[in-house]
Amino acid sequence: MAIYIQLILACFVLVSGCSNATTDIEKKAIETAAKSYLIAQIEARPELMEKVTDDELIKRTYWQDQQGKEFVMAMDKQGLIKLAAEYNLSGTRFSAQPKIELRILDVDKRVATVKLITDEWIDYMHLYKTASGEWRILNVLWQFHQIQKHKSVR
């Protein structure tokens, strides 16, 4: 009986060890996809943005128009690719050592939620794992740290 219990415990330890290894691999892949989204903007690499985002991506934030009316501003994948190509062409939009802090908030099989913190803003992202095993960004909700910046200039 004692040998039987030891075998069960040994199997449990082996299985839990394998699942942790998979979790670490998955977390690294999620981290790579989320950070690539920011690196694409920092380094003006639209092809990288194309790779890590889903075709149905929507990036949103709240905004005020010139009359002060608040609305939800949205950008699709093509807009985000264009942003990556143009936003930092001058090389002055980010500090020499930009802050890239990533917190994986939750992972459940093929979906994940992360918080990406930069010098100027935060992004909450939803990612999913494709059938081919790649993690892609599907949704982004973002906000400037200085929320008064969420308005159109008059």
Rank of each mutant, 00 (worst) to 15 (best):
I3M: 06
Q6V: 11
L9G: 13
A10T: 14
V13T: 13
V13S: 10
L14S: 10
V15R: 00
S16H: 03
S16Q: 13
S19E: 14
I25C: 02
K28R: 08
K28Y: 11
T32P: 02
T32I: 02
A33M: 07
A34E: 00
S36E: 12
L38S: 08
Q41I: 06
I42N: 01
E43W: 04
R45E: 15
R45W: 11
P46D: 02
L48H: 00
L48K: 08
K51R: 10
V52P: 11
D54K: 02
D54I: 05
I58Q: 04
K59Y: 07
T61H: 08
T61G: 01
Q64K: 13
D65E: 01
D65W: 01
K69A: 11
E70V: 10
A74E: 14
A74P: 05
K77Y: 11
Q78N: 13
G79N: 04
L80W: 00
I81T: 06
I81M: 06
K82Y: 14
E86S: 03
E86D: 02
Y87W: 13
N88C: 12
L89Y: 01
S90R: 06
S90L: 09
G91H: 10
G91R: 08
R93Q: 11
A96F: 15
P98R: 02
I100E: 07
I100Q: 14
R103I: 03
K109H: 10
V111H: 07
T113F: 05
V114L: 09
V114D: 13
K115R: 08
I117Y: 00
I122W: 10
L127D: 06
K129M: 06
K129D: 11
I137N: 07
I137S: 07
W142A: 00
F144N: 12
Q148G: 00
K149E: 15
K151H: 13
